[in-house]
Amino acid sequence: MASQGTKRSYEQMETDGERQNATEIRASVGKMIDGIGRFYIQMCTELKLSDYEGRLIQNSLTIERMVLSAFDERRNKYLEEHPSAGKDPKKTGGPIYKRVDRKWMRELVLYDKEEIRRIWRQANNGDDATAGLTHMMIWHSNLNDTTYQRTRALVRTGMDPRMCSLMQGSTLPRRSGAAGAAVKGVGTMVMELIRMIKRGINDRNFWRGENGRKTRSAYERMCNILKGKFQTAAQRAMMDQVRESRNPGNAEIEDLIFLARSALILRGSVAHKSCLPACVYGPAVASGYDFEKEGYSLVGIDPFKLLQNSQVYSLIRPNENPAHKSQLVWMACNSAAFEDLRVLSFIRGTKVSPRGKLSTRGVQIASNENMDAMESSTLELRSRYWAIRTRSGGNTNQQRASAGQISVQPAFSVQRNLPFDKPTIMAAFTGNTEGRTSDMRAEIIRMMEGAKPEEMSFQGRGVFELSDERAANPIVPSFDMSNEGSYFFGDNAEEYDN
């Protein structure tokens, strides 16, 4: 993207840094990872977990959730003011799984939030270390993106479920800051804005008074975040219109849905970061690795190297396929839920299948599930090659597409044709070009129609051997075009429920 120079890199967003050079960025990201790792080690000690239990991804998720809940100030305040039966607002906890007599047992633990905050700050040299908290939120978000298709949420806001490739980060909490905003897809931002506008339509006082002023500035800020994701002048001009509207209503909703559809071809720039579970960072720190000293990046080879040398386990339900569970977590670790499966298959070195073909449910185990038949197995999170994460949407291309997802959002900077089903997408653009945004709409449609099938995206960008740390010898991959490109292809993934 041309304006790259004016933006802070995501590592800076990730670490609240002012302008830093590459070495400083690597050190501050490393410091953040160190903090998460030290916190995780301490929690495993508190909970008396064995090494194996500490490497269980379900335990990692519970521990991450506990610290996120302990620092969720708004919710904590709300819980104190609106006490609900049987919930102690000062405590947080969740299921911890232990191996007892050759069987997995679930144990519900409860801790004072104050105590968890103390352990977290102690692991982070006394700081609140917001960057580390956001990092864990993005890992949870990436896992949700890989596990669930947001059909219901899309339909509720009037969008087409086939636009799911635009929904990265749709389950990120509001408090995820600049680093969170960077990884949100165009569809996620559109959905947040539509929800806001709908509230304004239904509630006369939404934009009024002292609160209304705050609401208005939040609305304009979200519009600017979305505008910054678009790469064409016409899309940005249309966002200006939406932002400046005196009284946002149905016309703005129409414009936003139009823009979301246009992003299936004229893709937005959305950041991709490899955020790993805390149970990967903990053992690495415990083994003596100093992330701050060595430096770390979320968008280069580092996460690949770390996963190459990590042992992570997962509980497996009786009829689940461990290899499929591994694929789910591998995609989440690489922030690749909406990437082209052919690119992923090449990088991973084994075939990556669409969601609907995987015999696996989510990673988390519900409290009512029976533990008797639970097994555990090693997650295979290694890769054959590594590639640089991208934040450009890439230019655009036609490809055989599917009944489910009709476009992709690249996660890796790797040369390819970008699949999208042009006739299906263009069919949504018939007729409606009147109104105050008509010239911009016409211009956007013209650009979409001009998108050429034979153009290559990320020209000359390749993948790298894991021994090639400096990215000196790019390998331009070859793809098996007979395979499906979309992950949520004609899909039956479970729906995400809060």
Rank of each mutant, 00 (worst) to 15 (best):
R8L: 03
Y10S: 15
Q12K: 02
M13A: 01
G17D: 06
E18P: 01
R26T: 04
A27K: 02
V29S: 03
D34R: 14
G35S: 00
F39V: 14
F39D: 07
L47Y: 06
K48G: 00
D51K: 02
Y52I: 15
I57Y: 03
L68W: 01
F71P: 12
R75M: 08
N76S: 04
E81C: 09
H82T: 01
A85Y: 14
P89D: 04
G93C: 11
I96G: 03
R99V: 15
V100G: 00
D101Q: 00
D101R: 08
D101C: 06
R102N: 15
R102M: 12
K103G: 00
W104F: 02
M105T: 02
R118Q: 03
I119G: 01
N124Q: 14
G126T: 00
T130N: 05
T134K: 13
Y148Q: 08
T151W: 10
T151V: 09
R152D: 11
R152H: 07
L154I: 15
L154H: 15
T157D: 14
M163G: 05
S165P: 01
S165L: 08
L166S: 13
G177C: 08
A181I: 09
V183T: 06
K184M: 12
V186M: 08
G187V: 13
L193N: 13
R195N: 13
R204M: 12
R204Y: 12
F206C: 14
F206V: 14
W207L: 04
R208W: 10
E210C: 13
G212S: 05
S217L: 13
E220H: 11
M222R: 13
C223F: 04
N224I: 14
I225Q: 08
L226R: 14
T232F: 07
M239G: 01
M239Q: 12
M239C: 06
D240R: 03
Q241Y: 13
V242S: 04
G249H: 10
I253Q: 06
E254L: 12
I257Y: 15
I265D: 12
S269F: 10
K273E: 05
S274E: 10
C275T: 07
C275S: 05
A278P: 02
V280P: 12
V280Q: 12
Y281N: 03
G282W: 08
A284G: 14
A284P: 01
S287M: 10
G288A: 15
K293G: 07
S297T: 08
L298I: 05
L298M: 05
G300W: 11
L306K: 08
L306W: 11
L306D: 08
L307F: 15
Q311N: 02
V312E: 08
L315Y: 14
N319Q: 01
H324W: 06
S326C: 14
S335R: 01
E339N: 12
V343I: 15
P354T: 06
G356M: 10
S359F: 12
V363Y: 15
V363G: 03
Q364G: 12
M371H: 07
D372E: 03
A373D: 01
E375A: 12
E380W: 10
R382E: 09
S383E: 05
R384S: 03
W386P: 08
I388G: 13
S392W: 04
N397V: 01
S402I: 08
Q409C: 05
P410Y: 08
Q415K: 08
P419Y: 03
A428K: 02
F429M: 03
N432A: 06
T433H: 14
T433I: 13
E434T: 00
G435R: 09
R436T: 01
A442H: 00
I444N: 15
M456D: 12
V463Y: 08
E465I: 10
S467G: 15
D468C: 04
R470G: 12
A472N: 12
F479L: 15
D480I: 09
G485L: 03
D491E: 02
D491V: 03
Y496C: 08
D497R: 14
D497F: 03
N498H: 00
